[in-house]
């Protein structure tokens, strides 16, 4: 499914992460690591939003060479999203839904289930961190992705929303065959999700546990 080869990410000549070869099969996978270990950097690289050296392919679709096709398949929800505070959540999500070619009604359905539609017409500047996080989580489920990365999906959101996220992950995996990469330094509830592999992000590389 996901193939990472000769991956190297540096910031100002300081090595953050180096992966010689990593093959991730289909399924739900958990990336563990302490703060600053490089989980978010890895997810952002796989999403194609930050530059890196090496190759990342999803089902043989190259992150750099097939820009549009790759991004239709791979979605990301960031750990600590930062959006323009003068826009509304609806502005942003409508744009993302259109770009991701979301089905009619998908956005509204997801917004209703996560409770986002109650506040999404207000400017983002009025949102709490949990409300912003839900905008980010929702955006990752838009379109018809085959891989969804949720970076620290459980932080800042309330218990009810945590349950809904679990249900969405389970539903997308079981009914649509969508794979997930989840990052967290907290333990997930294994009984709720069929975690296939656990990967440890430490010492500037990724190893399977």
């Amino acid at each position: 499914m996901l193939n990472i080869q000769n991956f190297l990410k540096t910031y100002n000549n300081h090595k953050i992460l180096e992966i010689e070869n990593l093959q991730i099969p289909e399924g739900i996978h958990w990336f563990k690591g302490i703060n600053g270990s490089g989980k978010s950097t890895l997810f952002r690289s796989i999403a194609g939003i930050i530059p890196f050296k090496g190759n990342i392919l999803f089902n043989n679709t190259d992150c750099r060479k097939e820009v549009v096709a790759y991004r239709l398949l791979v979605n990301l929800s960031e750990a600590e999203p930062l959006y323009p505070d003068y826009l509304s959540g609806y502005d942003l999500l409508s744009f993302m839904a259109e770009a991701k070619k979301a089905r009619d009604g998908q956005l509204k359905k997801l917004a209703d289930s996560l409770g986002v539609s109650q506040y999404w017409k207000s400017p983002i500047g009025t949102y709490s961190s949990g409300m912003q996080k839900k905008i980010s989580l929702l955006s990752a489920f838009l379109g018809s992705p085959k891989l969804i990365m949720l970076d620290e999906p459980l932080i800042t959101i309330d218990d009810r929303s945590v349950q809904i996220v679990y249900e969405l992950v389970k539903d997308y995996y079981e009914k649509q065959g969508v794979s997930f990469l989840l990052s967290s330094h907290q333990d997930f509830r294994f009984e709720r999700l069929a975690i296939k592999n656990i990967y440890l992000v430490q010492n500037q590389t990724v190893t399977q546990q």
Partner: peptide, 17 residues
């Protein structure tokens, strides 16, 4: 600055050049 601070996620969107 605006793009990189607030709209970096647009690089994950399947928009053509």
């Amino acid at each position: 600055i605006f793009e990189n601070k607030f709209m970096l996620i647009t690089k994950n969107l399947p928009l053509s050049d």
